[in-house]
């Protein structure tokens, strides 16, 4: 019994940053890298299933990313995932969710997991695409934005809830194996213990290239191309000026307007 959890390393920006010379991305001096928030929850869900089942469940984590992405992989290994796979080649620099999904599909062929959990979206680009694209390529059952899951390893189906707009949830059953994209709040993610962090350094991480997986140049072409990237005009608050009395009066108006009072 095996669960595959693809995770992503995201890049966040401070308030001030500069564009790269070609104007198609941000200068990477300004990036702060971190594990995608959603992946804390997807990994936790896999670990909870592993722990509830006693032994016999292996949690494999996978990432498409360069050396830097090792940090994200070690972060989830430290929480208790059993081993990792990292796929990279410089040709992947322009990869989007569709390309990542193609690579993950090859990993699924290789690893033959019983379930795949991805994050519902990433906190930097938020395409909400990678997991379900993977399912599309595999032809596997799939559900997005899963906020609750009942699943026993090996069972032919699972019951889950999908979180819809406005907090409404749909209860759904799904045939397994399946690809599920996991929503924030589905569980309480753990922090790695300091011991876990030390152990993670010893855990096995396979490094592969797209070539190793039988993927050629044609397979790595993204579904879109960035023409230019720029800072939006807005983003700064509309300032309410005046004396405190005037400011408060305007604020009261805004409150009443939005509250429909």
């Amino acid at each position: 019994m095996k669960i595959l959890v693809p995770v992503k390393q995201i890049a966040s920006l401070d308030d001030q940053f500069e564009m790269r010379d070609d104007g198609r991305d941000v200068d990477d001096d300004y990036f702060e890298k971190d594990l995608n928030e959603f992946d804390h929850f997807s990994v936790e869900q896999a670990l909870l299933i592993k722990e509830a089942a006693g032994d016999g469940v292996e949690v494999v984590v996978a990432i498409v990313g360069d050396d830097d992405a090792d940090d994200a992989l070690r972060t989830v290994l430290a929480k208790g995932a059993d081993r990792g796979i990292r796929v990279w080649d410089d040709a992947l620099a322009g990869a989007d969710g569709i390309v990542v999904a193609k690579i993950l599909a090859k990993l699924v062929e290789r690893e033959k997991p019983d379930m795949v959990f991805t994050g519902a979206q990433s906190t930097d680009f938020g395409s909400a695409a990678t997991g379900m694209a993977l399912a599309g390529i595999l032809g596997w059952p799939h559900a997005a934005v899963v906020s609750h899951l009942d699943y026993t390893p090996g069972a032919p189906s699972a019951t889950l809830r999908r979180e819809l707009e406005g907090g409404l949830e749909e209860v759904m059953s799904i045939r397994c194996p399946a690809v599920l994209s996991i929503q924030l709040g589905i569980n309480q993610p753990r922090y790695a213990s300091l011991r876990g962090i030390k152990q993670a350094k010893q855990k096995q991480v396979d490094e592969l290239s797209p070539d190793d997986l039988g993927l050629g140049e044609d397979d790595l072409r993204p579904a879109s191309n960035v023409r230019r990237m720029y800072v939006p005009e807005r983003g700064k608050a509309e300032l309410i000026t005046g004396t405190a009395a005037e400011q408060a009066a305007r604020l009261a108006e805004i409150i009443k307007e939005i509250r429909g009072m």
Binding site: S12, Y230, G235
Partner: peptide
């Protein structure tokens, strides 16, 4: 949008 809404990008296909 990208990078948590800090940037916009124009994309083509």
């Amino acid at each position: 949008a990208g990078y948590a809404e800090k940037v916009l990008m124009d994309i083509d296909f």
